[in-house]
């Protein structure tokens, strides 16, 4: 089994001639928590949308679980759990019925397993409360539970802490750490809240203006940052790259 779950090679996405993703090249190894960092409009969501199939790349390719064939990629996506922008929820159903409906897509109907997933994300006691009455934090946590229904090997989360209060952010961080540590789920999480990612990620992929300008591990980051905070390092890196991104092999 390959160490790599995901490899992108020169992946490009254009919208009306504008490059939202510009020859993006990076990889994700099994077992890590990858922080995908970039300013608003940097191309994080575009990359995630292409990887999850919501959007088609203009050029370049990517390998997911060892395959890059379009038909096999669809099969490979069954090993991914994802929240892109906002979780897809059934507003008029309670948490358990959301789980059961989502389970149909993957042939999963075990209520005990669904209950366990709801317990993991802290929604074990929501009873018959309809999702439309959930708080933002509860919705995000339910989104993660839904993304876990298929027992994914890779969890892709697009800004999951957006709109959460400080307590919600801490809970989310602890939840993601536990999913990675206890269940071995590899996580790719995009965010522009760098302090939050610094406490969570084991690896970093930095994107700006559609180009990957750096990929490095936490250890490498600590060496390269040389005492600077992640924010300071990131801003310096962006300044260095204002005249064109550096492609990571």
């Amino acid at each position: 089994m390959s160490d790599y779950i995901l490899k992108l090679e020169n992946l490009t996405k254009e919208y009306a001639g504008q490059r939202a993703l510009d020859c993006a090249t990076f990889d994700v190894k099994r077992g890590g928590i990858y922080g995908f960092i970039g300013e608003n409009g940097a191309g994080k969501t575009t990359a995630i949308r292409v990887l999850t199939g919501l959007s088609k790349a203009t050029s370049g390719n990517f390998e997911l679980f060892g395959t890059s064939q379009p038909k096999e990629i669809d099969e490979a996506r069954q090993k991914i759990g994802a929240i892109v922008e906002n979780p897809i929820l059934y507003q008029n159903k309670n948490a358990m019925n959301n789980m059961l409906t989502q389970g149909l897509l993957y042939g999963k109907s075990d209520r005990a397993q669904m209950r366990e997933l709801l317990e993991i994300v802290g929604l074990g006691n929501t009873g018959n409360k309809k999702v439309r009455n959930f708080s933002l934090g509860m919705r995000q946590r339910l989104g993660i539970a839904l993304a876990l229904v298929n027992s994914p090997e890779l969890l892709i989360l697009d800004e999951p802490t957006n709109g959460l209060d400080p307590m919600g952010m801490v809970e989310m961080r602890n939840l993601l750490k536990s999913l990675n540590r206890d269940y071995g789920i590899t996580i790719l999480i995009s965010s522009h809240i760098l302090a939050e990612l610094y406490q969570l990620a084991t690896d970093y992929i930095i994107i700006s203006h559609g180009r990957i300008i750096e990929q490095l591990s936490l250890e490498q980051l600590q060496v390269e940052a040389a005492g600077r905070s992640l924010e300071e390092y990131y801003i310096d890196l962006l300044t260095e790259n204002t005249n064109g991104g550096r492609k990571i092999a």
Partner: peptide
């Protein structure tokens, strides 16, 4: 209601 997105995300294929 983003059911199309849910189906594609699940790897069911377009």
């Amino acid at each position: 209601n983003r059911f199309a997105q849910a189906a594609v995300l699940s790897g069911s294929g377009r």
